[in-house]
Simulated scan of single mutants.
Amino acid sequence: MSDNQPQGNYYNKYESKNIIEKRLMQGFFNSIDRCLDQIKFQRVLEAGCGEGHVTDYIKRRYKCTIEGFDIGEEAINKAKRYFVDIPFYIHSIYELPYEEEFDLVVCCEVIEHLEQYEKALEELFRISKKYVLVSVPREPLWRFLNLCRLKYVKDLGNTPGHINHWGHKEFKRLLSKYGNIIDTQSPLPWQVILLEKR
């Protein structure tokens, strides 16, 4: 496993008490809602679920059957403690033990960490029956905002572990190779794209 492979959240933005971060996270979840409100789904998988916050949000908001996985044992153990009614597993995103069995596959804040992000995307689309939702930081805005708050200055605002950086057009171009784009959202400072499998 690469040192850059994410294992949970580098910084737990989901539980932040900071009012600005809470508003940013609300914008992120609102964007997920705007995408998912357009489609019908029942069985969902979250890939790279970390401590399970997005998994739990989707379960509560959409009353669906959902499970999550991450490569990090510590993150999965936390997810199991936090959200006891959701099944969580340890898997590599590159070799998933599923067939084409999920109506929706969700992958938030993961592929910016992956050396083999195209292999990961192939797996996500392989196991989806119809839809895939992916989010990543919006660059270069992400790094600029980190610099504004004097974070990761020696790395020019790059969050530790982020090895891939996409602007909006580049990210859409990448994902278009795998599916048809249904919707794009740009909650500050992310980009969220919903696709339908071809």
Rank of each mutant, 00 (worst) to 15 (best):
C107Y: 01
S16H: 04
E196H: 01
H168D: 12
K172D: 08
C35Q: 02
Y152Q: 05
V106H: 09
N9R: 06
E139L: 05
Y178H: 06
Y14D: 11
Y131N: 01
K17S: 15
L147V: 14
C35K: 00
Q191E: 10
Q38K: 15
Q26M: 12
S16E: 05
L114C: 07
N164E: 12
E170A: 15
V84I: 01
Q191P: 15
I58K: 05
S176M: 00
G179T: 04
W142F: 15
I90H: 01
P97H: 03
I193L: 08
L194N: 07
E74L: 09
K154H: 10
T159G: 00
W142N: 13
I93R: 00
H162P: 11
G8S: 08
F144I: 15
E46R: 03
N4V: 10
T55W: 03
P97I: 08
P6V: 08
E99D: 14
E46I: 08
T65S: 15
V134F: 08
L150V: 06
C108P: 01
N4C: 11
I193H: 07
W142Y: 14
E74H: 07
P87F: 05
V110G: 01
I111M: 05
L104I: 09
A120R: 06
L147Y: 02
S135T: 15
Q26I: 10
H168E: 14
K22G: 04
L96N: 11
F125G: 10
N12L: 10
F83A: 06
